[in-house]
């Protein structure tokens, strides 16, 4: 009996804590937006973060995009040629990439490559009192440390996703046209007639922007909220990767159901 009440009250405690954390996250987001203005006045800080989150993620994004495109090309061809419509390979590759794989896979890679390092950096700065020191120097860490990292990620993400998709289409072209011998003209013209600029490309960009906001917010929040110890920081990094992945997939479902309904 006591065990049951203990369990229930324990559960209540956990739920309470989670909700309080969510509330703190919301307050944090508002603060972040408020201090973003200040951080834009020092734009070099954001440029630096674009370098760390964007430029340094280039390699993994381009290579993965190429391989995803190659695999799509191979698998797509296998299936399509059974129905005699191998010409539609370009459509298949381009639509899968621009609508789904580009934004989603690029965001997952981004979360584990750049998001985790942002969390680690902010967490360690907190653990070594660098954030407190900055605050004591009358420099707001929200404006100088958190906001530039957030916006660096938000700006990088759509660009990375576009590069991923472009690289993937190139991979599909390489396999389909260069190696297998699908007709070059059909590959591109079918693709162009079925991929719509507004419906597919712009929606894909919107998706990657939303993922960029989500991943960057999770990364900076987990770092800022981490327990200032080695263990606390490592747990925060894990949480960043896991929460980001869940958020990306859940948001993708929601966005897809809004964007492509009735198509």
């Amino acid at each position: 009996m006591t065990r049951v009440t203990e369990w229930v009250s324990g559960l209540g405690h956990v739920v309470n804590e989670k909700i309080a954390r969510l509330g703190f996250a919301a307050r944090f987001f508002v603060m972040l937006l408020v201090y973003s203005g200040q951080s834009f006045r020092r734009f070099p800080l954001t440029i630096r973060e674009i370098y760390f989150s964007g430029v340094l993620s280039l390699l993994i994004i381009l290579v993965s995009g190429l391989f995803v495109g190659l695999v799509l090309g191979l698998q797509g061809y296998e299936t399509l040629q059974r129905y005699g419509s191998a010409d539609a390979l370009g459509v298949l590759v381009a639509l899968s990439l621009t609508r789904e794989l580009g934004p989603v896979v690029a965001a997952l890679l981004f979360a584990s490559r750049a998001g985790s390092s942002v969390t680690a950096e902010i967490g360690l700065m907190k653990a070594t009192e660098q954030l407190t020191a900055m605050d004591m120097m009358a420099v707001n860490p929200m404006a100088r440390v958190v906001a530039p990292r957030f916006w660096g990620g938000v700006i990088s993400m759509p660009l990375l996703a576009a590069m991923f998709s472009a690289m993937g289409v190139f991979g599909g072209y390489l396999i389909g046209v260069v190696f297998i011998g699908v007709d070059d003209g059909a590959f591109w013209s079918q693709m162009q007639s079925s991929v719509d600029f507004r419906q597919d490309i712009i929606n894909g960009v919107i998706k990657s922007f939303v993922f960029g906001v989500a991943v960057s917010l999770i990364a900076v929040f987990e770092g800022y909220d981490s327990t200032p110890t080695a263990e606390g920081v490592s747990r925060a990094i894990t949480r960043t990767v896991v929460t980001s992945a869940l958020a990306i997939l859940a948001l993708d479902f929601v966005l897809t159901s809004f964007m492509f309904r009735g198509l």
Binding site: A133, M134, M136
Partner: peptide, 14 residues
Amino acid sequence: RRRMGMLFQFGALF
């Protein structure tokens, strides 16, 4: 705080 300086116990260098 602009008129205050503080040396932290563990340095807290950037």
